[in-house]
Simulated assay, not measured.
Amino acid sequence: MTTQCSTTTTPARFLLLGDSHAGCVGRAAQAAELPFVGGPLGSGRDFLGPFFDTGTTDLTFRQADTQRLYRQHLHTLDVSALAGLPVPLVCTFGLSAHTVATRQNWDLYRDRHGTVPDTFLHSRLFADLVRATVRGALAFYDHIAALGLRVLAPLPPQRVPGMSDPNVFFAAQHVLVDELTARDVELVDLRARVTDGTGLQRPAFCQADDTIHGNLAFGRLVVSELLDRGL
Rank of each mutant, 00 (worst) to 15 (best):
L187P: 07
Q30E: 15
F52K: 03
D228S: 14
L187Q: 13
D107I: 11
D178F: 07
R62M: 10
A192V: 11
D165A: 09
A132V: 11
P11D: 06
R220Q: 13
D209I: 10
D196M: 07
L16Y: 00
A31Q: 12
L190G: 01
Y109N: 04
D196Y: 10
G84S: 13
A32R: 03
V87Y: 07
F14W: 09
S20Y: 08
T66R: 05
H122S: 14
A97T: 01
L152R: 07
Q173G: 04
L59C: 06
G84I: 01
F36G: 00
P117A: 11
T119Q: 07
E186F: 07
L180S: 01
V175Q: 05
Q207M: 14
L176V: 03
D19F: 02
L152I: 05
H113N: 14
L16C: 02
M1H: 14
L82N: 04
G18Y: 11
A145Y: 00
L227R: 14
E33V: 12
R45C: 12
L190R: 02
D228P: 01
V194H: 01
L15T: 04
H73Y: 14
D178M: 11
A64V: 12
C5A: 15
D65S: 15
L15S: 02
E179T: 04
Y109D: 03
G44T: 10
D111P: 04
A31R: 09
F205W: 08
Y70L: 05
A153G: 00
L95W: 00
T102D: 06
G219W: 01
Q173D: 11
L176F: 02
H174F: 00
S6C: 15
E33H: 14
T115I: 11
T76G: 06
D228R: 12
G114F: 06
F169N: 02
V116R: 00
R135H: 15
C91L: 10
R150L: 10
D128R: 13
H213D: 02
L147H: 01
P50H: 06
T8R: 15
V188R: 05
Q207I: 08
G114T: 03
R220K: 13
T195L: 10
S6D: 04
A64P: 05
P154Y: 02
G26S: 00
D78F: 09
T2Y: 11
V100K: 02
R193A: 15
D184M: 13
F126K: 07
V90L: 09
S80P: 04
H73R: 08
L82W: 01
A139F: 02
N167C: 07
L77Q: 08
D209H: 12
A208H: 10
P11E: 08
T119K: 09
L190N: 06
R45L: 11
G23P: 00
Q158D: 09
R229T: 03
H75G: 12
C206N: 08
D65P: 07
A97G: 01
F170G: 10
D184I: 07
V194G: 01
T66K: 07
D210F: 05
T211L: 09
T195S: 12
D107T: 12
H122T: 14
T8V: 07
A101H: 01
N215W: 03
T10L: 11
H174A: 09
R124F: 05
P117M: 10
V222L: 02
M1V: 14
L221W: 00
A101G: 06
V25K: 00
C24T: 13
L15N: 04
T195V: 13
T76I: 12
A83R: 10
